[in-house]
Design a protein around this nucleic acid. Structure first.
Lengths: 233, 233
DNA sequence: TGAAGGAACTATACGGCGTGAAGTTTCCGT
DNA sequence: ACGGAAACTTCACGCCGTATAGTTCCTTCA
């Protein structure tokens, strides 16, 4: 075990994924075809079946990796701004989210759109896990803002049972003071940011406004304001 | 002109679109294939080229029709709630938006997602127009809320030049009292609602919360609150 | 050392896809 | 009645995922 055979195998697997990502970056998620990957690698399409049972398996793996990359990006942005005022920290996180999406539009489509004709996401896997990581990141925003915002959500009647156990398994230990209403707030913020970024990535915002940047900045300003967190300046 | 030939042609065109929509409803946007449509109609795939220059042309036409249907749905909901309090009227509109999406998830994907492998939306066409109609609908929400919300956006420095002329051509005549900051608010609300609905349609919300209904209702409650519009009850 | 076994890969094939070119039928206007 | 156009079919090409069978080569163990 751990011999040359398995090392070569791991390298080939990595190359397949890398080539697939390169194809996706240039031609969109639809460009991920076994034949194109094999062509790029000087192989036959069928050889890939030795590494991935099916094309959807490969796509699933890619989704997991890309989603993890997104989660890493926003997590590290959050960590780097640890010392900042909550308002600035929240804005840093959100900007990292949008910046990653703009830098990896195909990755964003891969994660959040219909990645490939007929692709159906499997039940388990790392993608829900990465999604939970992202949600946990937003829960961190909510947690940071909660001392300011709590009074606004006094009448919200959410219970823990309203949420997914896998998500709560990450959120509750990390933020023991955050109540169910705070998790709902986090999901809503996620939706807000996802919506604006998604519209932009898919080109729908472009037909409405000249500079989405300004709109997003306004969103962030109003976000921290609506949370009751005083802006930095 | 206006003879039997052209009537038959119009009927066939309509049947192609209808069959395509039926296929989409059952198998998703990816099921829209010329061969499947032709099979359903007892024709050859190439016969469709007499009616649509290419498959993307057909998809574009479908997008226009479906988008128009969405715009009609939310417009009529807005009109029916004309007498209601602004808070209720806004919530009625937003619920109509989400209800339409949940009732026509494939249509939503067709409009807002990657409809079909490699499809690229053309520059002009009716889709941007329908998008402007939807945005104008949200501008109506903003306009209704503006008397309450204006003070919150006093420091926003948006200008007319920040927005698309086609959109302004519809919004400014309809709502002469709405300033640029109000249009920005409308786009932000659009993004918020789109994000939550989009996450739900694509199944990402499902792995976080048990009942998206409740989350969306919370969103509406907080929306009217953040606009300063007193809730009805 | 040499044979067994399995992993890696190729060859071939099938059906489905969009699309182009050429041929055939059917109908309309003159 | 006839010329021409519109509607439609047939055939072909290259793309796709994938199943099956066959081949080559490395590793491991007796």
């Amino acid at each position: 075990m751990g011999g040359r055979r398995e090392r070569l195998r791991a390298e080939t697997t990595a190359e397949i994924k890398q080539v697939a990502l390169k194809l996706m970056a240039t031609g969109g998620p639809d460009a991920i075809t076994l034949r194109a990957i094999a062509r790029e690698m000087g192989m036959t399409a069928n050889a890939i079946y030795g590494y991935f049972a099916t094309r959807d398996d490969l796509v699933t793996t890619l989704i997991n990796e890309v989603y993890t990359a997104l989660a890493d990006a926003v997590d590290s942005a959050w960590a780097e701004a640890a010392a900042a005022h909550p308002a600035g920290r929240i804005q840093t996180w959100a900007r990292a989210f949008r910046d990653w999406a703009l830098a990896n539009p195909e990755g964003f489509r891969l994660i959040y759109g219909d990645p490939v004709p007929g692709y159906q996401a499997p039940e388990g896997g790392a993608a829900p896990d990465a999604a939970h990581r992202v949600c946990t990141g937003i829960a961190a925003l909510a947690d940071a803002a909660w001392p300011y915002a709590e009074s606004l959500y006094a009448h919200s009647d959410f219970q823990w049972s309203d949420f997914d156990d896998g998500l709560l398994g990450k959120v509750r230990p990390a933020f023991p003071d955050l109540p169910p209403a705070g998790v709902a707030l986090a999901l809503r913020i996620w939706g807000h940011l996802h919506g604006l970024v998604s519209l932009e990535i898919y080109g729908h915002l472009h037909t409405q406004t000249i500079n989405p940047d300004k709109l997003f900045q306004e969103e962030l300003t109003q976000l921290v304001r609506s949370l009751g967190v005083a802006p930095e300046t």
